[in-house]
């Protein structure tokens, strides 16, 4: 068998996976050590602060605005042409999110970013990130009455797999991604939840 690019690709994936495993193991060891010296509450709280930083990033916050109008850009200004989420968070017939946002990013500078099911939270449960303190946001995330009727497991699943969340780390040309990786973000979310989903003080 010749060494086709496909095969070499597989090899690369293998190396990356091995390296990743090593990092995870080491990190867990470090974490385990930390566990001994810090309370579960502190660990949870510290993890949430990292999660919070991501949720406050424009890529996440822009679609979790305080008002009816989403935000845009790295400076989180009110969305141009004052689009609204409408009755289902997906826009108003004639100007839906999908009127402009495709299921993926498209060619060209400053074209609208795209991911499947581009939308805002349902207006009955707006899940506001904008202007929230860590404590307010943690409370909101924990409470099924304010988080979209989700269990913490479901929240974790949402942030791990939802394509719209994942888009935040592949936002396309001219847009920044959150400072920590998606994997790290999910990990911190899990640590927060596993250690009691503490509301930071």
């Amino acid at each position: 068998m010749t060494n086709t690019p496909k095969n070499s690709g597989f090899a690369r994936v293998g190396i990356v996976a091995a390296a990743w495993l090593l990092i995870v193991v080491v990190t867990n060891l470090v974490m385990a050590e930390q566990k001994q010296s810090t309370s579960k509450e502190d660990i949870s709280s510290a993890a949430f602060l990292k999660v919070y930083k991501v949720l406050q990033h424009p890529r996440c916050m822009n679609c979790h605005p305080a008002g009816h109008i989403p935000l845009q850009g790295d400076n989180s200004v009110a969305h141009n042409m004052r689009v609204k989420g409408g009755k289902d968070g997906k826009g108003i017939p004639g100007m839906k999110c999908m009127t402009c946002h495709q299921t993926q990013n498209v060619t060209g500078k400053r074209t609208p970013p795209g991911a499947p099911n581009w939308h805002l939270p349902h207006p009955d449960m707006p899940l506001v990130f904008q202007g929230k303190t860590p404590a307010e946001l943690a409370k909101q995330l924990k409470d099924p009455k304010t988080n979209g009727n989700k269990t913490l497991e479901q929240i974790l699943h949402h942030v791990s797999h939802d394509p719209l969340v994942l888009w935040g780390w592949k936002p396309g040309e001219g847009r920044t991604a959150p400072s920590i990786s998606h994997k790290e973000f999910v990990k911190q979310m899990k640590i927060w939840i596993d250690n009691g989903a503490v509301v930071p003080k």
Binding site: G94, M95, M98, T99, Q102, V106, G108, T111, P112
Partner: peptide, 24 residues
């Protein structure tokens, strides 16, 4: 405009308004 800012290119796709300048 070519970047879904002006609406001049609006068409309907399955009955929904779509900006054709950014729709592959």
């Amino acid at each position: 405009c070519g970047v879904a800012q002006c609406g001049a290119c609006t068409v309907h796709v399955d009955g929904e308004a779509v900006r054709s300048c950014v729709t592959p």
